[in-house]
Simulated scan of single mutants.
Amino acid sequence: MQTIFENLTIGVFAKAAGVNVETIRFYQRKGLLPEPDKPYGSIRRYGEADVTRVRFVKSAQRLGFSLDEIAELLRLDDGTHCDEASHLAEHKLQDVREKIADLARMETVLSELVRACHARKGNVSCPLIASLQGEKEISNSGAE
């Protein structure tokens, strides 16, 4: 029995996968998605496996994986390389935690600058502009 996701043109395939046609072509150029053969005098056709693969790529991107990392995950997609996949995920998790820490530092500094802006009186220079111009060193200088 043929499913609804078999024998798709690139336009229908892109729609089924939730992306645009240029995304499909980009993934093919990057080696993330195989380009099917083009029968003589006909057009390329895609199937359910292609839709699943694009959805995999998009899901991995939402988790912050780069296209190179996604290519590596796709190489491991037979399910027998869980240790290798876990290792990649651990590195990504560490990256995410570092970004969260950086964002928390940025939030602290910006919060202090906004508070200083609201507290200023008279013709005093804007604390935010002054700090960005280097007139006053920003506290928590780790947020660069």
Score class of each variant (00 low, 15 high):
39 P>C: 06
41 G>Q: 05
46 Y>W: 07
46 Y>C: 02
49 A>P: 03
49 A>T: 11
50 D>M: 06
50 D>G: 11
52 T>M: 11
53 R>A: 07
55 R>C: 05
56 F>G: 00
57 V>K: 06
60 A>D: 02
60 A>V: 01
66 S>L: 01
68 D>L: 12
71 A>G: 14
73 L>I: 09
74 L>Q: 10
75 R>L: 12
75 R>E: 15
75 R>H: 14
76 L>G: 04
76 L>T: 00
80 T>D: 12
82 C>F: 05
84 E>A: 15
85 A>M: 06
85 A>D: 01
86 S>Y: 10
89 A>E: 09
90 E>F: 10
92 K>Q: 15
93 L>M: 04
95 D>A: 12
95 D>P: 06
97 R>S: 02
97 R>Y: 04
97 R>I: 07
98 E>I: 04
99 K>Y: 03
102 D>W: 10
108 T>H: 13
108 T>C: 10
110 L>N: 00
116 A>W: 02
119 A>K: 13
121 K>Q: 15
124 V>L: 14
125 S>D: 15
125 S>C: 13
127 P>V: 10
127 P>D: 06
128 L>V: 15
129 I>A: 04
130 A>R: 03
130 A>N: 06
131 S>Q: 09
132 L>I: 03
133 Q>H: 08
135 E>P: 07
137 E>Y: 03
138 I>N: 08
140 N>I: 12
140 N>D: 13
